[in-house]
């Protein structure tokens, strides 16, 4: 059942708006493997939407469909109520959808600053000539971009490693830089694939705080995949639960927690 109201305010005072993105009857196959089986769900403006489920459930595949890395055989993606044509990943990025990867995809040879700077590429519009001659527009653009980048660096508390080549950073910091690059794009929708995987407790707490703050301060809509039930329950407004490519639950954390199918999947009850 869908809410009839178009927007509402959460208990902690954030505004959740209308549907930003809707997935309708998505089916995705790899040869014989069906990674996603006829799944529908939506993401509302301003919310934190989680996708959870056991390993191999198809969560990353779903994120890849949203970001244009995978193209489903069946079903449609709607953005602000309009059907989205098949798009390449870079086109999706230019629409204002930024993402991180489960296995971290950073530019290992570049510094932290340069990595975050690439996140601004979609906001650089001046032509080669005006760049070369450092004309007004290129200059103004560069200044504006610098400001955003500095803000992101401050926000993520990574001033001390800004010049460090990313390849030399420990895992937890890499995850943070990758988030920074996505944030630099000032996205409308931020997709995070297991942002806390492989982190220790302290790093997880930091990351949770960043995610909540991004959503709260900038009003960024966030869809995230997470393994850890506890973390998801704390962070998200609504949760989609996947198992073996199917959707087995969708609702608020409390609703999902008490769903028998979800409990079974997480306790590893045998499937047939």
């Amino acid at each position: 059942m869908k809410d009839s109201i178009d927007s509402h305010v959460t208990a902690d005072g954030r505004t959740i708006g209308g549907v930003l993105m809707e997935m309708r009857d998505i089916t995705l196959r790899f040869g014989g493997v069906v990674a996603i089986k006829g799944i529908s769900f939506d993401i509302r403006e301003g919310e934190i939407r989680a996708i959870i489920g056991p390993n191999g459930a198809g969560k990353s595949s779903m994120l890849n469909v949203i970001s244009g890395f995978y193209h489903p055989q069946e079903g449609d993606v709607f953005f602000r109520g309009e059907k989205r044509p098949t798009m390449r990943p870079y086109e999706v990025a230019r629409m204002g959808i930024a993402r991180t990867f489960q296995n971290i995809a950073l530019f290992e040879g570049m510094s932290v600053l340069d990595n975050i700077m690439t996140g601004r590429l979609t906001h650089m519009n001046s032509g080669i000539l005006s760049q070369a001659l450092w004309w007004g527009r290129a200059q103004k653009e560069e200044t504006a971009n610098r400001e955003v980048i500095e803000k992101v660096i401050d926000f993520l508390e990574i001033q001390s490693i800004r010049k460090t080549p990313v390849g030399r950073l420990p895992y937890g910091l890499k995850k943070r830089v990758e988030l920074g690059r996505a944030l630099a794009a000032e996205p409308k929708l931020l997709l995070l694939d297991e942002p806390m995987a492989g982190m220790n407790v302290e790093e997880k707490e930091d990351m949770s705080r960043f995610i909540l703050d991004v959503n709260d301060e900038f009003g960024t809509t966030i869809a995230l995949i997470e393994h850890d039930m506890g973390v998801v329950m704390d962070l998200s407004d609504r949760v989609v639960v996947m198992d073996y490519g199917k959707k087995i639950g969708d609702g608020t954390p409390d609703e999902v927690r008490n769903n028998q199918q979800v409990i079974d999947a997480y306790l590893g009850v045998a499937h047939d």
Partner: peptide
Amino acid sequence: DDHQAALSVGISL
């Protein structure tokens, strides 16, 4: 440096 990452920041390969 990295194709996937490049795509994700809006670069057309």
